[in-house]
């Protein structure tokens, strides 16, 4: 993984967020901001620069990952890697397609796959 990347990790499950953050830092990530709601993600994206966003679709607040990504897309062009438990869901696919996500990963995310996706976005 390209060292020093700034990643916004949007994940509402605390333990999973911690684990992923730990792994990303171990793999060389420079800065990893973790938020649990879509609203917080939008706020972070507005105030901080990120190289990419790793976004869980299912989030704690009222706003889901897709909506948060769409909001962010309105003011900033940051690549988004989606993670979802329902990769086959037609509604989900129909909603994410127009956002042209950098990758869509199946949960639980195989960390190596995530690294591969991050690498392809960063290059």
């Amino acid at each position: 993984m390209k060292p020093g990347l700034a990643i916004l990790l949007v994940e509402d499950e605390a333990i999973i967020a911690m684990d992923l953050r730990f792994r990303l830092i171990s793999a060389g990530c420079g800065r990893c901001r973790v938020v649990s709601t879509g609203e917080a993600a939008v706020a972070s994206a507005e105030t901080e620069p990120f190289d990419m966003i790793v976004m869980d679709n299912h989030l704690a607040g009222a706003m889901d990952g897709i909506e948060a990504a769409a909001r962010i897309r309105d003011f900033k062009d940051i690549p988004v890697i989606f993670m979802t438990g329902y990769p086959q869901d037609e509604v989900y696919l129909a909603k994410t397609r127009p956002l042209r996500p950098a990758a869509c990963l199946d949960k639980p995310v195989i960390f190596e796959d995530l690294i591969a996706a991050i690498d392809s976005v960063a290059s």
Binding site: I16, M18, D19, G85, K107
Partner: peptide, 20 residues
Amino acid sequence: YHRTKNNMNVIGAMLSLRAR
């Protein structure tokens, strides 16, 4: 089923964290 799967993933993540 979905919650069960999520919980298992959380347990997995917890163990990974601890191990490291």
